[in-house]
């Protein structure tokens, strides 16, 4: 990190006169926890998870195009417990990223910026993501079972 120009501002001395590296301006650790901060970083992480999951999804499409044997292998991976967990995680992450993304577009228009609105919408976004996840997972599982007989 020596190449970081900001380092120049961190030279200081303690009460004994010893040279120390001054602390950076405190930010994350001095604030009381608020839902909005978790939802914000959560949206970022959900975005990364959606992107990684999309890479898996497109690989699944590749296996589908490749041939029956590749597809059988892909389905075996996708339907084993770990594969299902990954698919579920991708789905929930993408749903949350979708909901939080809509909130961002609303914010971009200048609306819903009041503290109370942000708190209320934050909770709503969690309930909406949860509801959509449960509903879609139930629909997916039911449809798969019916069609496979």
């Amino acid at each position: 990190m020596a190449s970081d120009g900001r380092e120049a501002f961190y030279h200081g001395t303690d009460t004994e006169g010893q040279a120390i590296r001054r602390p950076m301006s405190p930010h994350l650790d001095i604030y009381r926890f608020r839902l909005s901060m978790a939802l914000s970083i959560g949206n970022r992480m959900a975005g990364v998870a959606s992107a990684l999951g999309a890479l898996l999804a497109v690989s699944w499409l590749g296996a589908l195009a490749q041939g029956p044997r590749s597809f059988a292998r892909a389905q075996k991976i996708a339907t084993n417990p770990l594969g299902r967990l990954v698919f579920l995680g991708w789905g929930v992450a993408t749903l949350y990223h979708f909901v939080a993304g809509i909130r961002h577009l609303i914010w971009d228009s200048g609306a819903r910026f009041e503290k109370k609105e942000i708190d209320r919408d934050g909770k709503r976004s969690l309930f909406l993501t949860g509801g959509l996840s449960v509903g879609l997972v139930a629909a997916f599982v039911t449809l798969s079972r019916i069609r496979k007989g």
């Binding site: 979708f98 993304g101 879609l136 997916f140 449809l143 798969s144 079972r145 069609r147």
Partner: peptide
């Protein structure tokens, strides 16, 4: 993002359409 929003909704309906096929 604006373009992806309706397309992802379409994607979800297609995943349900193809589930178990």
């Amino acid at each position: 993002a604006l373009l992806l929003a309706p397309l992802s909704l379409w994607g979800v309906t297609q995943i349900l359409r193809l589930a178990g096929r």
